[in-house]
Nucleic acid binder design. Structure first.
Lengths: 213, 213
DNA sequence: TGACAAAATTAACAGTGTTAAGTAAATTGA
DNA sequence: TCAATTTACTTAACACTGTTAATTTTGTCA
């Protein structure tokens, strides 16, 4: 009976995990479909019923996987925060020179905004409060993008390569400067898109001068 | 009959203008009510039916005065653009020293954002494209706020008080820097509100250093 | 007063997020 | 293998939303 019970348990566990897997698959499918719909229709034109239509389920099915529309939106945003954090981390890792490092983080920030305007708008302009929200279930390895910035700064300060200021404050200054350029370009008023790059370069140059000892 | 026809015409004209006046009054009343509702409920929670309820008219009445919800929203935003433009113009007029002038424009920008966060969000974060739209009927004396900035800059450059750059570009830099600080503070993530003022001051100081000859 | 024009309303449509009740399918234990 | 039960999903409904067309009320003129 040892073998029987073992086989039974194995079956039990197997089907149970298959169940969970299916659930995760559909949850992922919803999220995936929601993201593409969100990217094409934008914040205002995004609806749950469209998502349901796209995946071939009834609208209420979504509620079995997400508490409400806002939680789904948050998960969409979170995918962005994840990629954003990874991009900034990669920039951090790509150099050991402190100034070059900060330059590359700035570049990664700018590029993310230019390449993912719809996501950027959601994350930092329309629903900026999402950034302060705790990670949804299933995401463990989130890198806080702001921390990458402040770490790069305080390390540079500790090693005497960067002028000493309050790292939080300095991080805020950098963040604000980059966000200003990106969001102004995305908002698209008065600023032709070809001025984005030189404006970014200028801003970075000014910041570098401010921070260099 | 001269007098009679004259009196008749006068009556006619009088009642006609009274009619127009009433129309304008109601339009203004709708806009006024819409603004307070918008300020309290925010962009997402703002609805035409609420406005109708507040002014004691049926929802469809609004459509006699505004083409659709978006036009009403634009008018709400436009009231903001007007006040914003006036504040910047006043800042411009308040000093003849070029650097002081730019400093005060920056201060006016910052203060507007801090004092009218809901309006600021609508104007520059949620519906930034409104800025490029032409003025609604009834508004003639609109001052383009961006022009005030570029004028202050190019005048300073012409008189040799400000380092010579492309005024449009320099205006963009200033605008972006200010917008970055204000919108980051409004978005409220990672940045405690009491850091707004020092962050603004730092940003302005950096810009001043960049522009001073 | 009666004809006409303007102003406002009612009714309706298509769409939204969301909840509660009901159905079908998969899984379990005997 | 078969009934019991949990899980997955759907249908129906509610309370909203913006918006249009048809209709009624109101005001103004001869």
């Amino acid at each position: 009976m040892n073998t029987i019970s073992t086989r039974g348990e194995r079956l039990k566990k197997g089907s149970a995990s298959r169940r969970v897997q299916n659930k995760l698959d559909l949850k992922r499918q919803i999220l995936e479909s929601a993201m593409t719909l969100f990217e094409t229709h934008g914040y205002d034109g995004f609806s749950l019923r469209q998502v349901a239509e796209a995946i071939g389920y009834s609208p209420t099915t979504i509620y079995l996987y997400f508490k409400d529309k806002d939680e789904l939106l948050f998960n969409i945003a979170y995918e962005g925060f994840r990629d954003f954090g990874l991009a900034l981390q990669a920039a951090y890792d790509s150099s050991s020179d402190h100034h070059e490092r900060i330059w590359r983080i700035g570049r990664a920030y700018f590029d993310f905004g230019m390449n993912h305007p719809v996501h950027y708008r959601l994350m930092f302009m329309q629903r900026g409060e999402f950034l302060a929200q705790t990670a949804p279930t299933g995401y463990t390895d989130f890198v806080d993008s702001f921390s990458i910035l402040t770490r790069a700064l305080s390390e540079g300060m500790d090693e005497g390569k960067i002028k000493t200021f309050d790292p939080q404050m300095t991080g805020g200054l950098l963040w604000a400067s980059l966000h200003g350029v990106v969001s102004l370009v995305l908002t698209n008023s008065h600023l032709p898109p070809e001025t984005a790059e030189p404006l970014f370069a200028w801003q970075m140059q000014i910041l570098e001068r401010e921070l260099r000892m």
